[in-house]
């Protein structure tokens, strides 16, 4: 009888501990996320400091793997790595808490900006401001292309792929989702061909 009671007690405190953990995860990511001005990659050193040094949720030797896997699944790297850690620390509730924490602050900021945008977009001064902003946004997009291009273009084949994608998109009406998926297929096929060519070269040498 007595042992049953202590058992019950321990499960409720365990539950409380888990709830506390889930909230702590939410709070940790809620705190980091408003600092991500400009996108995910800016956040990496901040995340590293918070998760490895302060919270000790991730071991230093694991952090590179964590970012690599977060980059390999759809979504932003910052939100994704948070979701991974949340899952590891407290299961599915932990994953949801981390994701919500990471998304909520920017959601509120963007919502405020959206309300202003919808309310004032037809005002002449705002229109004039946007006329100045539009070319800057095009510049911002080019810079993003250059940045991603630096990791994407590693040989002649990948450079050709960039050019093909841009021109096919400009001159045809292929759905961008189809383009992205064919990129993955092209990668697999090209790698296979490269392997075969290499094997052939090596067998030819012998």
């Amino acid at each position: 009888m007595q042992s049953e009671q202590t058992l019950e007690k321990s499960t409720t405190s365990e539950k409380q501990g888990r709830m506390k953990m889930v909230f702590e995860i939410f709070w940790a990511f809620f705190k980091i996320s408003p600092l991500t001005f400009g996108g995910g990659y800016v956040m990496i050193p901040l995340l590293e400091r918070e998760l490895v040094e302060r919270k000790k949720w991730v071991k230093p030797e694991e952090i590179a793997d964590l970012f690599a896997v977060s980059e390999s699944v759809p979504g932003s790297i910052a939100v994704n790595s948070g979701t991974f850690i949340g899952y590891r620390l407290a299961g599915i509730p932990g994953a949801i808490a981390a994701m919500t924490g990471a998304v909520l602050p920017t959601f509120m900021i963007i919502l405020t900006l959206s309300i202003l945008f919808v309310g004032f977009k037809d005002h002449p001064t705002v229109q004039a401001a946007f006329q100045g902003i539009r070319p800057t946004i095009v510049a911002l997009i080019i810079v993003a292309g250059i940045k991603i291009g630096k990791t994407a273009v590693i040989d002649r084949t990948t450079l050709v792929l960039v050019a093909i994608t841009t021109s096919v998109m400009l001159f045809s009406h292929i759905h961008p989702i189809a383009t992205i998926l064919s990129g993955a297929v092209a990668g697999i096929v090209l790698m296979q061909i490269k392997k075969l060519l290499k094997a052939k070269k090596e067998s030819g040498r012998e």
Binding site: I148, A152, V162, T165, T166, G183, L190
Partner: peptide, 9 residues
């Protein structure tokens, strides 16, 4: 293949 296609996009 994905990275260059995304760059192209």
């Amino acid at each position: 293949g994905l990275r260059p296609v995304i760059t192209g996009l």
